[in-house]
Design a protein around this nucleic acid. Structure first.
Length: 481
DNA sequence: TGGCGGTTCCA
DNA sequence: GGAACCGCC
């Protein structure tokens, strides 16, 4: 006798219908499906911007499910307790979900799987969040990759199964269990001032993400090589926030970019490499979870990072008042829009960890609070890469000079002028919006004068280099894994 | 997915 | 005098 009891489909960071193997399987089973999102500890730990963005995503995805006769049930609590209660209320016989790969999620989900199975409930997890499961990519010696280029070579020729189409129907249960109201969760309340800007810059939801992808494939990807490094332009896909919530799946991007590459689109290969960087970050996090919280390379404990959040350099950096225009523009863009251009991220991160010698974890935590596309694996990898203590890291002496970078990538100052009001007779609206978004306690005014550099660039560079030299003078040079 | 200061070599 | 290149940080 085949199973007919309902499936509880636990949604986490996979708020989409298409390219969603677990949901496709649940829909295809013909069994009733109870989609649920749980406001658990992991949601409570989100920073302001990602929480705000999650709220928008949940609203959209709930509406999408509603349009097809289903629902998104919202519950607050620890996942095992919530799921247990839902099983009791609905008589469901299964809990299915898409795998996540943070160490906390793996611990939580494997314990849950055991508990459910002991209770006679089917527990099933699916792929779909990544192109390649982390345990399926191995070096010739049977280890995991620590350098990107070999990782790329190992996976770039692989077959990636075609994305599942969106299910036409997800069978509802006979009776719906109760749901909490999204508005009661208060997601995004701290983003109230910047919120309107974020919402207008980036429409949430799967349909909007697919539209952005269509536009990017049609007109953007051909220019990607030439334009992706210009922070003032729109040369990037702007899909990172959707990707971080799973509003769009990586296989969809892989196949669409692959088709574009096949048609000879310049830049498609570069875009695919960027997409695979995301998988590489998850690969590293899976195999070495300390990537998230500690210097990935041993020996870096001795490096004299500043670790006090009250450090004046760190405070100036967070407030976009370092006196380095490209860095400040980047920090302000992020504070107002929840987004920061990729090249600007590298420059801002390099400036913080090298010129200001502030610990990458402080910078990463600030990003975690400010970025709507927040992704722990990608950010930990990126910050450690910039700081020099990460896998495949830039050698310690690779220090971005914000002025040189500005000459190369913002030659006319468009990006800097777009975000920095001080000193402009008629500042653009975006630059002014920063002063509406920041807390009053920061005491910033657009008509104040722009600050002089808090640290001379050549002095900061030399200080960082000599700190590295003395920290690693004993032979443990921090460059070896 | 660097920057810097040096040298060479040509205008 | 400056682009191009190189070795080192």
């Amino acid at each position: 006798m085949s199973e007919t009891r309902a499936i509880i489909y636990w949604l986490r960071r996979d708020l989409r219908l298409a390219d969603h193997p677990g949901l496709a399987a649940a829909a295809a089973s013909g069994r009733p499906v109870v989609p649920v999102f749980i406001h658990d500890e992991s949601v409570a730990a989100l920073g302001a911007a990602p929480a705000f963005r999650l709220g928008l995503g949940l609203e959209r995805f709930g509406a999408t499910l509603g349009d097809m006769g289903s629902r998104l049930i919202l519950r607050r609590g620890s996942a095992p307790a919530v799921l247990q209660a839902l099983i009791a209320e609905t008589g469901a016989g299964a809990v299915w979900w898409t795998r996540e790969y943070t160490p906390q999620a793996i611990t939580r989900d494997s314990a849950l799987k055991t508990a459910l199975q002991q209770a006679g409930i089917e527990a099933r997890s699916f792929g779909g969040a990544l192109l390649f499961e982390p345990w399926t990519v191995e070096t010739g010696a049977g280890g995991f990759y620590k350098v990107y280029t070999p990782f790329w070579r190992a996976v770039s020729q692989r077959e990636v199964s075609a994305p599942d189409p969106a299910p036409a129907r997800v069978r509802p249960p006979e009776a719906w269990p109760g749901s909490e109201a999204l508005s009661d969760w208060g997601l995004g309340a701290p983003m109230r001032r910047g919120a309107a800007v974020v919402a207008t810059h980036q429409a949430p939801g799967e349909a909007a993400a697919l539209e952005r992808l269509d536009r990017f494939i049609a007109t953007g990807i051909g220019q990607y090589d030439a334009c992706r490094d210009l922070p003032a332009g729109d040369g990037t896909s702007t899909l990172s926030d959707a990707l971080s919530l799973g509003e769009i799946g990586p296989r969809t991007l892989w196949h669409r970019a692959g088709e574009a590459a096949h048609k000879g689109a310049q830049g498609a290969e570069t875009f695919l490499k960027q997409l695979v960087w995301r998988d590489f970050a998850y690969h590293l996090m899976y195999h070495t979870p300390h990537l998230l919280s500690e210097n990935w390379r041993p020996g870096w404990e001795v490096f004299p990072w500043a670790t006090d959040p009250a450090d004046p350099g760190f405070v100036a950096w967070t407030r976009g008042r370092t006196g380095v225009p490209l860095v400040d523009a980047a920090m302000r863009e992020m504070y107002v829009t929840g987004r920061m251009h990729n090249r600007a991220r590298m420059i801002a991160a390099s400036y913080l960890t090298k010129h200001l010698m502030v610990h990458w974890k402080l910078g990463m935590d600030w990003f975690a609070d400010c970025l709507t596309d927040w992704d722990p694996a990608a950010n930990a990898m990126g910050w450690q890469w910039v700081a020099g203590c990460g896998p495949d890291a830039a050698p310690y002496f690779r220090i971005f000079n914000p002025e040189t970078q500005a000459k190369k990538f913002d030659p006319k100052g468009r990006y800097r002028n777009h975000w920095i009001a001080e000193g402009q007779a008629e500042p653009p609206r975006a630059a002014l919006s920063y002063f509406d978004a920041v807390p009053r306690s920061w005491n910033l005014r657009p008509d104040a004068s722009y600050p002089p550099p808090i640290m001379a660039l050549d002095q900061g560079r030399r200080r960082a280099l000599s700190a590295y030299a003395s920290a690693f003078s004993q032979g443990s040079d921090g460059k070896l894994a």
